[in-house]
């Protein structure tokens, strides 16, 4: 059952009603065209109330301890009277399309705390798609009064690029040792990090973590920082013993302060908005294009010709685009 009156969502979210917030996120994530239209109405109404949170992205390979880290940081922030929302993107099975979302089992205290809101979302079969929706979910959380919004994503695919492009601060969690320096995380991820934290620096692992920290520092020094005012630091932390968590949060605040002072903060958000605009335009164009009756009619034939080797890929694409362009000109 889905409410069709935009007022239900807008008023509910602005009142901070959990159920309305949750339903709004469902609406945003829905694949139905009618829901998308409603989403736009709701978002337009909420937009004036957004933008006021610290947006923090967190990534790392499975097993790095993301959820436990978020539990520790989140509990600490709610003690400081912050309103904390967490959006987690979970991978789905390519075969069945279904997914298992168990993040909250590792956030036992935080998920039970009424001051925190945690929403896991299935990535679905297309990773990019859900991340797009996460951006809108951030806005809704802000409108509901949350002043810290964390986005958790598994650092093995492409989703972390989109996440980095929607947050103010992008934290990459890594583990010490295991030989391979970047542990399956693409080198590119390190380039977009605002900070790296070596997690599980506890017990027998403290020394390993310190060594890993030094290694990552060396690696980072060889890259040009994304912003002139911020050199991404490498830290160690333990979500288990709560060490290093404060220092990471301090860095997030320091980053925000320096970026704001230099005017970088607003520039970054504007850039993100521009990227977002171009992305939406791209997606919209594609969607519009493939729905055109002429395209629907011509496409199968051209595909068949390419399969049979009767035409080349380049010629096929050109023919489709040119025909279409002529038709559009004749129309106008």
């Amino acid at each position: 059952m889905i409410e069709t009156d935009p007022k239900y969502y807008v008023d509910g979210v602005l009142e901070g009603n959990r159920k309305a917030l949750s339903k709004t996120i469902t609406l945003i994530e829905s694949a139905l065209p009618s829901h998308q239209k409603l989403t736009h109405e709701v978002l337009d109404a909420l937009l004036p109330h957004t933008g006021n949170s610290i947006r923090l992205g967190i990534t790392g390979v499975p097993g790095v301890g993301k959820s436990t880290f978020i539990e520790s940081l989140g509990l600490r922030l709610i003690e400081e009277e912050h309103q904390v929302a967490i959006l987690a993107v979970d991978p789905s099975s390519a075969k069945s399309g279904g997914s298992i979302m168990g993040d909250k089992t590792r956030m036992e205290k935080l998920s039970a705390d009424p001051r925190a809101f945690i929403r896991p979302s299935p990535a679905g079969r297309t990773l990019g798609g859900v991340a797009r929706k996460t951006r809108e979910s951030i806005l809704v959380c802000e409108a509901a009064g949350f002043d810290v919004v964390m986005v958790e994503t598994v650092g093995v695919g492409q989703s972390e690029y989109s996440v980095a492009s929607m947050v103010d601060f992008f934290l990459v969690l890594l583990l010490a040792g295991a030989g391979d320096e970047l542990q399956g995380i693409k080198r590119g991820i390190i380039e977009i990090a605002d900070a790296i934290a070596v997690n599980k620096a506890d017990g027998n692992n403290i020394e390993n973590a310190a060594n890993a920290k030094a290694a990552y520092e060396n690696a980072l020094h060889m890259m040009a920082p994304a912003s002139p005012v911020w050199q991404p630091p490498v830290m160690t932390c333990s979500a288990l013993t709560m060490t290093g968590i404060d220092a990471i949060w301090h860095n997030v605040l320091e980053h925000r302060h320096l970026m704001q002072q230099a005017g970088e903060f607003d520039r970054k958000r504007r850039e993100q908005a521009m990227d977002w605009f171009l992305y939406l335009l791209d997606e919209g164009l594609k969607e519009w294009f493939y729905q055109l009756p002429d395209v629907k009619e011509m496409l199968p034939g051209i595909r068949r010709q390419i399969t049979d080797g009767r035409t080349t890929a380049m010629a096929g694409a050109r023919r489709l685009l040119e025909t279409l362009s002529t038709m559009l000109q004749n129309d106008s």
Partner: peptide, 12 residues
């Protein structure tokens, strides 16, 4: 259930 195409949440 996940294999059957449900989205499954597990609580602590």
């Amino acid at each position: 259930y996940a294999d059957l195409g449900f989205d499954v949440d597990i609580s602590p």
